[in-house]
Design a protein around this nucleic acid. Sequence first.
DNA 1: ATATTTTATGTAATTTTTTACATAAAATGC
DNA 2: GCATTTTATGTAAAAAATTACATAAAATAT
Lengths: 322, 322
Amino acid sequence: MATIKDVAKMAHVSVATVSRVINQKGYVNSETKQLVLDAIKELNYVPNELARSLFQKKSSIIAVIVPHLTSYYFAELLEYIENYTVNLDYRLMVCNSQDDPDKESKYLKIFDQYNIDGIILISNTHRIDDYKKLNIPIVEIDHKLAEDIPSIQSNNFLGGKLAAQKLVNNGCKKIIHFRGPSDLVTVQERTKGFKSVLEKNQIFNFSYDLDFRAPSASDIDNVIKSNLDCDGVFCDSDYIAILAIQAIKDAGKRIPEDIQVIGFDDIEIADVLRPRLTTIAQSRKEMGEYAVTALMKLIHKEKLEPFDRNIDVKLIERDTTI
Amino acid sequence: MATIKDVAKMAHVSVATVSRVINQKGYVNSETKQLVLDAIKELNYVPNELARSLFQKKSSIIAVIVPHLTSYYFAELLEYIENYTVNLDYRLMVCNSQDDPDKESKYLKIFDQYNIDGIILISNTHRIDDYKKLNIPIVEIDHKLAEDIPSIQSNNFLGGKLAAQKLVNNGCKKIIHFRGPSDLVTVQERTKGFKSVLEKNQIFNFSYDLDFRAPSASDIDNVIKSNLDCDGVFCDSDYIAILAIQAIKDAGKRIPEDIQVIGFDDIEIADVLRPRLTTIAQSRKEMGEYAVTALMKLIHKEKLEPFDRNIDVKLIERDTTI
DNA sequence: ATATTTTATGTAATTTTTTACATAAAATGC
DNA sequence: GCATTTTATGTAAAAAATTACATAAAATAT
């Protein structure tokens, strides 16, 4: 591995001159510059990022904390975040908290040690004080843990409204809402939007709470079986919707003729399985890109406008609604 | 951020003594040690990993190169790799190549710059010479690019055999193999195992090649429709199997009575969708853990036995076979 | 009682890069 | 023609840690 000293020696200049060439800073004669460039090429030199990071107290690494990697929603979010991050010449440290506060703490310690430049938080483990102590720029996705931390999330309120409106327009009279954990703001917002429409139209509805990570298929089955007179189902994730569809089929009801189903997320398989799932699409692309953009603004101490961002959702009509 | 100097000052000792305490190396009086420990606690000191890495020419970071993040197989593999890596007090840099050689090259450059300690390669972009130039320990999953790079993969030959054996035992006479890209060793091995059994039993069969990332649903549809007399289908991924099942249903055939289907991978949803999918399970846990174990042995220059590792697969019988 | 080993701690070099400061030649201004 | 500015380059300190080497007191051996 060649160092800046090797380059300097080969080009018969000082390390400062080499550094000036690399960083395009300060005065350097064009002939000298060429000599340096030649030496760099000859030696296949790349500056050591650790030394650079050490000196500048930054690392060009940003960390993302996710609860897990295997659900499509997070995976795709991560895919966009990674891609956008690398485009901006930063690298990504993926931190899988597994919803385990201890594992998350372990990572928190690491951030300081590596001069991590910024954090994208998609975690459920609420250790906001620990994060603030770090003094590293943070943005959040799908959560809002503190007033002074910018957050990005879908317009969940609108999502709930769109789903309700569709079911109401299609004549549903008894609607089940298979909901995610009610302590999540995203879920609360969806519920608010959903209920607002149903209440205005005085449509009977109730909600049943499920875990996003491992929704209980048998619970869903039981709820469907004991409410065979329902005609609309709104699910807080496509995965839950897939389970609901199966429960409905098992109960001998037709989709969408007897019962209509709307999911949330628009994961890849929603368009593949039959019946193709009507759902509220969240744009992971926009969420991921805006999260990175916002974080970069914080890192460079630029003004962030708007501070919190709501990403538009869309109703994608497919085969599970009429 | 406190540094080792701050700790030294507070404990009234030299930085060398603090370093000895931290690294538990050399002599240090127990009372002095306690003073240092107290100062560390008081100042909330954590050693800067960048300075450490710079001096020791290692980083405690390992890189994983994956073609993408959104397929369940890779996501779960990554989940286990991340978990095991962090357990061993290393961090993970996730490099998403997106099957793009340029993006992969960009990452290759980074590895040297950060003194990356090791690489786990799950990429399809074959730039083996570029990797070797790096002089960083490498292990591969699902590929075998060079004799001197250890590789981990499922026993794909056995997987193919198990699937074929099952279909033959169940009386299938005409079998379609929906295959992955035939340039992958994994696919080649599966095919070999599969064919070996069918040829011995003189069962008619043919294969149709598909892309793993985006298998064409219409192609699958066409193949099924023009071979309605087939009675067994073996798919090189569960995702392909899901598409095949739909094509079969659309064609008005029953599963498993008319046509039996076996997938490969055992992804989460295979056990959720109806009919529940019979499949060859690959243990991502074992693959991931062994990959990390093997890489650690390379890093610490310990002997690796066996050099290449085949992970056992299992036939999981569910509803798509009789 | 002296020599040797063990324990204990400190000083300074080292890792690679950036940059403040120093120095001096060349170019420009009046 | 001399003062000032611009261009060009080098020296050395700094970032935060580890460690070889030096030094000396305490413990043990003979």
